[in-house]
Simulated scan of single mutants.
Amino acid sequence: MNLYRSVRAIASASGTGDGSGSIDWDAVATAAKSATDAGRLDLTPDDRSGYAADVRDARERLRSVGGLDFEVPETIEVQNRHHWIDANVSTFRRVMRPVESELQVAFPNATRVINTGSMTFVLSFLGSHVLGQYDPLLLADGDASASDGPANPDEADHSLYFVHPNIVAAADALDVDYPRFRRWIAFHEVAHAAEFGAAPWLSEHLESRMEDGLETLTKGGFDREAFHDLDVAMTAVEGYAEMLMDRAFDDEYADLRAKLDERRRGGGPLARLARRLLGLGLKRRQYERGAEFFRTVADRRGVAAAAAVWERPENLPTSAELDDPAQWLKRVDP
């Protein structure tokens, strides 16, 4: 790590090439990586074959248990923390583009430094904690020639990332078997791939809700309905993946769940503050609320019946139905 270089990159944030833009994304990448230990990526042959087998087995088990037809992404990467930061700078840049293009501020230079520092904090913290990620490439424009788009057309696809140093460190800190823990993470991320693979409309649905909300924010308003719809949809996404992974995982996992939940709640004051600022507590509540909904559906009608949620956007549960699965079943699967 080089904290001096990180601070210097933030302080010299200059926006895009012409000096415009509310975030200097090149500076974010430099600063976040300077503030974060990349971690080791010296994979053994067992590591390489293990990741491949975990993903392959998760695909087959999730297909069988969930009754879903999907493929895993073509892009599957075992990364260190710096690789993850680079990949997500591109994602955040796409997501923030609507805001940056419309946002007017009184003090652009100071705002750019503050925003660059904020995004550096976000990516540094997450880069040190994320274990795996399924990236549906929301808000991708499909332009492989764009400076912040995919490097080539083959990368304009959903992607699956595993942050190897974080997985190894977490397994060690939790005192759990590393191969079993790695496999459990793979099942969770492939469960997300199953959702988006089974619902070709899902990426566009989430994107439209996000764009509507961000566009209103740039005009000084707040589209409560758009953000409410996004929250409900993400609760379904997280909850279904949680339920499906639990039903499909081919080993005991209660100890993994308990220890990981304890780790998420723990940490020092700074870590707890960071999780609160980043809304990670909200994501945990989405997991829990959504998982309880789908467990109830699966218990009453079977796991395959729960997949009806991905047939069309109208089948997503409402907020009221998330707390009353019987009403959703009555509407969708009478």
Results as ranks from 00 to 15, higher is better:
Tyr4Met: 13
Arg5Ala: 14
Ser6Val: 01
Ile10Thr: 03
Ser12Leu: 10
Ser14Leu: 00
Gly15Arg: 00
Gly17Arg: 12
Gly17Glu: 15
Asp24Ile: 08
Trp25Ala: 05
Asp26Ile: 08
Val28Phe: 03
Val28Leu: 09
Thr36Trp: 03
Arg40Trp: 10
Leu41Trp: 07
Leu41Glu: 02
Asp42Ile: 03
Asp46Asn: 10
Ala53Thr: 10
Ala53Val: 06
Asp57Asn: 12
Gly66Asn: 01
Gly67Asn: 02
Leu68Trp: 00
Leu68Glu: 04
Phe70Lys: 02
Gln79Lys: 14
Asn80Gln: 11
Ile85Asn: 00
Val89His: 11
Val89Met: 04
Val89Tyr: 08
Val89Cys: 07
Arg93Glu: 12
Arg94His: 09
Val99Tyr: 15
Ser101Glu: 15
Val105Thr: 13
Val105Leu: 11
Pro108Asn: 03
Pro108Gln: 05
Asn115Arg: 00
Met119Tyr: 03
Phe121Ala: 09
Leu123Asn: 02
Ser124Phe: 00
Phe125Asp: 10
Phe125Glu: 13
Leu126Ser: 12
Ser128Tyr: 03
Ser128Leu: 07
Gly132Gln: 07
Gly132Val: 03
Gln133Trp: 05
Pro136Ser: 06
Leu139Gln: 12
Ala140His: 08
Ala140Ser: 13
Ala140Cys: 03
Asp141Thr: 06
Ser145Leu: 11
Ala146Met: 02
Asp148Ser: 07
Asn152Arg: 13
Asn152Phe: 15
Pro153Trp: 05
Asp157Gln: 09
Ser159Tyr: 07
Ser159Met: 14
Leu160Lys: 01
Leu160Asp: 07
Leu160Tyr: 09
His164Pro: 04
Asn166Val: 04
Ala171Glu: 05
Asp175Ala: 07
Phe181Gly: 10
Trp184Tyr: 10
Ile185Ser: 00
Phe187Gly: 00
Val190Thr: 05
Val190Cys: 05
Ala193Ile: 06
Ala198Asn: 14
Ser203Ile: 04
Met210Ala: 00
Glu215Thr: 15
Thr216Gln: 15
Gly220Glu: 13
Gly220Trp: 13
Glu225Gln: 14
Phe227Leu: 04
Asp229Trp: 09
Val232Ile: 11
Val232Arg: 02
Ala241Val: 03
Ala241Asp: 02
Glu242Thr: 05
Arg247Met: 04
Phe249Cys: 00
Asp250Phe: 08
Tyr253Asn: 04
Asp255Lys: 06
Ala258Gln: 12
Leu260His: 13
Gly267Met: 14
Gly268Arg: 10
Leu270Met: 10
Arg272Asp: 04
Ala274Gly: 03
Gly281Cys: 01
Leu282Arg: 14
Leu282His: 14
Arg285Lys: 14
Arg289Lys: 15
Gly290Glu: 01
Ala291Glu: 15
Glu292Thr: 14
Arg295Phe: 12
Val297Phe: 02
Gly302Thr: 04
Val303Cys: 09
Ala307Pro: 12
Val309Asp: 06
Glu311Asn: 13
Pro313Gly: 06
Glu314Val: 07
Glu314Ser: 07
Pro317Lys: 01
Glu321Cys: 01
Glu321Gln: 10
Leu322Glu: 14
Asp324Val: 06
Asp324Gly: 11
Val332Trp: 04
Asp333Pro: 09
Pro334Trp: 10
